[in-house]
Amino acid sequence: METPHYVAARVQRALAEDERTTELGIRVDVRGEEVYLRGQVSCDERRRQIENVAREAAPGLRVHNETTLVEVREAGEEEHL
């Protein structure tokens, strides 16, 4: 079995460099045959693409997409400096 450390590095690079994702802020952890993706994304489509790219970069492993959608809220309270 490939060393999990290198699988995680390959998935992370794929998520950053693949044109479908270009996501630099996704944390990738590999434990045995399980791949965990964590971080924040801005829409469902981007979340799906992250999962697709991760699956391609880690064939045969089970990908758990634990990324969360960033809910962009209306402006909050002001800060007086």
Binding site: A75, E79, H80
Partner: peptide, 25 residues
Amino acid sequence: IRVRNVALPVIKHAYTVYCLNGDDC
């Protein structure tokens, strides 16, 4: 100098407002 990181995933709002005080603050 006050520094503010306004990356959307950090502020979680469409924008944050900072008020630079005038004479009345």
